[in-house]
Design a binder for these strands. Sequence first.
DNA 1: TAGTTTGGTAAGTCATTCCTTACGGTAAGT
DNA 2: ACTTACCGTAAGGAATGACTTACCAAACTA
Lengths: 103, 103
Amino acid sequence: MTYQTTLTALADPTRRQIFEAVAAEPSSVGLLAVQLPVSRPAVSQHLKALSDAGLVNVTKQGTRNIYAACPDGLADLRRYLEQLWGDVLTSFANDIAKESQSD
Amino acid sequence: MTYQTTLTALADPTRRQIFEAVAAEPSSVGLLAVQLPVSRPAVSQHLKALSDAGLVNVTKQGTRNIYAACPDGLADLRRYLEQLWGDVLTSFANDIAKESQSD
DNA sequence: TAGTTTGGTAAGTCATTCCTTACGGTAAGT
DNA sequence: ACTTACCGTAAGGAATGACTTACCAAACTA
């Protein structure tokens, strides 16, 4: 459940679509499947990937499994991205400085 | 050059490694290749993907092509992630509220 | 208890992707 | 002009991944 897992989980379009859907409102597997262009097992497999990435959690409700968004996975990715953002900005600033120096 | 492209670009481990390397310091293609477990053409292809995602830019220096990190691609991804982060937090808070309501 | 609803898993297929070697092309050095 | 250094692209192969259908398990319902 590191940011690598989260990154690959969110890279897939339909998986990201599923995540955005449960972030808007928690939902069951079948309900998600009928709203998407893929089959129910596909949704189930995507939800497993999202769960492994710490992006969703499940609560059983009778025979239904309700999936909801959870912040854990995103928190790690956010930290990594902010760190990267800082590094890129300083690197970019250095490049500008060196460039104007050689003018 | 939307956040989708950036997301898939950063999802690959060696490609992310290349991006972090040029973010630490701009470098040529061959210099990156000798530091990585992949061939020089592989690095070149990865750099093309990073360039398409707006994550790097090139400056020719004789026969050498110097790649440097650029903030454009990351900016879009950051915006998307912050938006998503907000949605997830509010959704998560709502779930907690509903849960304590049913106790 | 029998039937229905809901989901996860297995097995297999098809597309994508990451990597390789081979080749061509441009710029600098002698 | 010839060689050397450096790089991008083409073509192909191997691995990964996303999706399907088929099947099985668990929990409500009548």
